[in-house]
Design a protein around this nucleic acid. Structure first.
Lengths: 244, 244
DNA sequence: AACCCTGCCGTAACTATGTTATGGATAGCA
DNA sequence: TGCTATCCATAACATAGTTACGGCAGGGTT
C-alpha cells in the first residue's frame, strides 16, 4: 500500500476510533511512521487530505449501497437501501458528517463542496454515485408501477432528504440513544411517503416486512440501553378519510 | 448591552458576514474592542462561546417560527412553518450548521450536543422549543382531522427529518444553486407525506396554495444564478392511481 | 480612612497545529 | 557519470486557543 493510501486509511481509522480532533497532521503522520511533510507531498495540505478522505468514504458508501441485493420487489429494495444507508451512517457518524462537508467554527477548513468551481452541484463526483443508486431504485419502483411520477431524480431527492435528515437528527440524539427512531420515525415516514407517491398500503406493508427480514435485526442494534419514552413506536394505524 | 451580549452578537454577525473561519478569539475580541481574555472571563473558552452562540441562534429560530401566524387551516400553518424553517436556514447557512452541532476535523470543538450529560436528547434546551412549535402544528392538524395518527411527536419528527435533510442538502448544492429545490423537492415531499398521513389531495393542494400566498415569493429568492439542469423543476403532476 | 476581597480585563507567554523553506536520499535515465 | 524528479525529514514560521500574572475599580469591613 502506498504512503498516500496508508494516510487515507489511517485517517478514516483514526476518525472512527478517536474522533475528528485526532485528524491532525502530526498525529496522522506519526500513525504511519512519517513526518508531517508527507501530507503536503501527497495532498498539498490538510484540505487535500480531507477531500481524499471524503472521496474514499463515498467509495465505501457506494459499495455498501451497491451490496444491497436487487429483487423483483423494487419498493422492498428501496427500503432495504434506506436501512443500509442508515446503517452506514450509524457505523461511523464522524465519517458521515465528514462526507457531507459540514464545517465548524475555528477550523480553517471549508466544506469540501465549497472548494470546487461554481455551479457544480457537488464537488465530489463520487457522491453522485450514492445518489445514483437511490435514483435507480426509485426508477425501478416507477417502472413497476408501484409509485407514480415522471421524475425519478425529484422523487429520489425526497427519499434522500428524508433519510439524510433522519440520520443526522438521530446521531444528534433527538430520537433517543437506543436506536428506536427507525421504527418510530423513519419507517412510518417511508411508508407515508410511498403511499403519498401512490403505492398501496398493503403492498407497502409487505415490502416493509420484506426489507426488515432481508436486513435482519441490524436496524435496532445501535447501542444497548434502557428503554425511553421519548418517542412512541409502532406504525400509525390508517383510518378512513375525514374530509372537511 | 453587556460585554457578554456584545460578544454573542458580534459572533453571530461575523459568522454570517465573514464565515465560520472568522469566529476566532482574536478577531472576535477586536470586533468589540477588547482582548481575548474576555472570552475566558465570560465563557470559559471558545467552546463556551460557541454554546452561547448556539443558544442564541435557537432563540432566534424559535422566534422566527413563532412569528408564523396561526390560522384555521392547520395544514397551511404547518406548510408555512416549513417555509419559514427553510427561510431561516437559508438566511444564514453557517448559523444553521452551527446550531446542529456539526463538527469538523481539525477543530478541537466537539458538537455542542456532545458536551452534555449522557442520556439527554439534546444538550441545548432552547432546541426543544423549535421542535415544540412543529409538534403543536402537527397536533392541530391531527385535531382538525386532516391527518391520522395518535402520536404528534413521531409525526412531527417525520416533518423535521424531511425539512432538516432538505435544508442541508440544499445548502450543500445538491439541488442546484438557484433555490429551485423547494418547488421540485420539498413541496412535493410535503404533499406526499401529508397524503400518506391521510390528508386529501385537493385539501393539500388548497393548503399548499395558501401557504405559498402567505409566505409570498420569498421561497425562491435565495441567490440569483444561471439555471442548471441538475434537478428538473415544477411540481410533479399527480396521476391516477395505478393499482397492481 | 485604611484595608481587603472580588470581578473584569490587558499584556505577554505557552502550546498545538497548519504550513513552508531547505536539503538529502533514492530511482530512473541519457 | 551526471541530471532530474520524486519523496521525505528537519527545522522554523504563522496562527489560534489558552494560561499566568498583574492592574484597576467598586464595594464592604474594620
Amino acid at each position: 500500500m502506498s504512503t498516500k493510501e496508508r494516510l487515507v486509511e489511517a485517517g478514516l481509522r483514526l476518525l472512527e476510533s478517536e474522533g475528528p480532533e485526532s485528524l491532525n497532521a502530526r498525529k496522522l503522520a506519526a500513525e504511519i511512521g512519517a513526518s508531517t511533510m508527507t501530507v503536503y507531498t501527497h495532498f498539498g495540505g490538510m484540505a487535500g487530505l480531507y477531500e481524499a478522505l471524503v472521496r474514499q468514504a463515498f467509495v465505501q458508501f457506494a459499495q455498501a449501497l451497491a451490496a444491497v441485493e436487487r429483487t423483483d420487489d423494487a419498493v422492498s429494495d428501496l427500503l432495504t437501501l434506506g436501512l443500509a444507508y442508515r446503517d452506514f451512517a450509524s457505523a461511523s457518524p464522524q465519517r458521515y458528517r465528514l462526507m457531507f462537508g459540514v464545517t465548524a467554527p475555528g477550523s480553517g477548513i471549508a466544506a469540501p463542496h465549497d472548494l470546487t468551481e461554481e455551479g457544480t452541484p457537488s464537488g465530489i463526483p463520487e457522491a453522485s454515485e450514492t445518489f445514483g443508486e437511490l435514483r435507480k431504485a426509485v426508477q425501478r419502483a416507477l417502472d413497476a408501477g408501484r409509485i407514480d411520477g415522471d421524475d425519478s431524480v425529484a422523487i429520489a431527492a425526497q427519499f434522500w432528504s428524508m433519510i439524510h435528515g433522519f440520520v443526522l437528527l438521530e446521531m444528534s440524539g433527538f430520537f433517543g440513544t437506543e436506536g428506536g427512531g427507525v421504527t418510530a420515525v423513519l419507517a412510518p415516514h417511508a411508508t407515508n411517503l410511498l403511499m403519498g407517491l401512490g403505492d398501496d398500503q398493503a403492498a407497502v406493508a409487505r415490502s416493509a416486512q420484506s426489507a426488515r427480514e432481508r436486513f435482519g435485526d441490524a436496524t435496532t442494534t445501535t447501542r444497548p440501553g434502557p428503554p425511553t419514552a421519548d418517542v412512541r413506536r409502532g406504525p400509525r394505524p390508517r383510518t378512513d378519510r375525514k374530509r372537511t
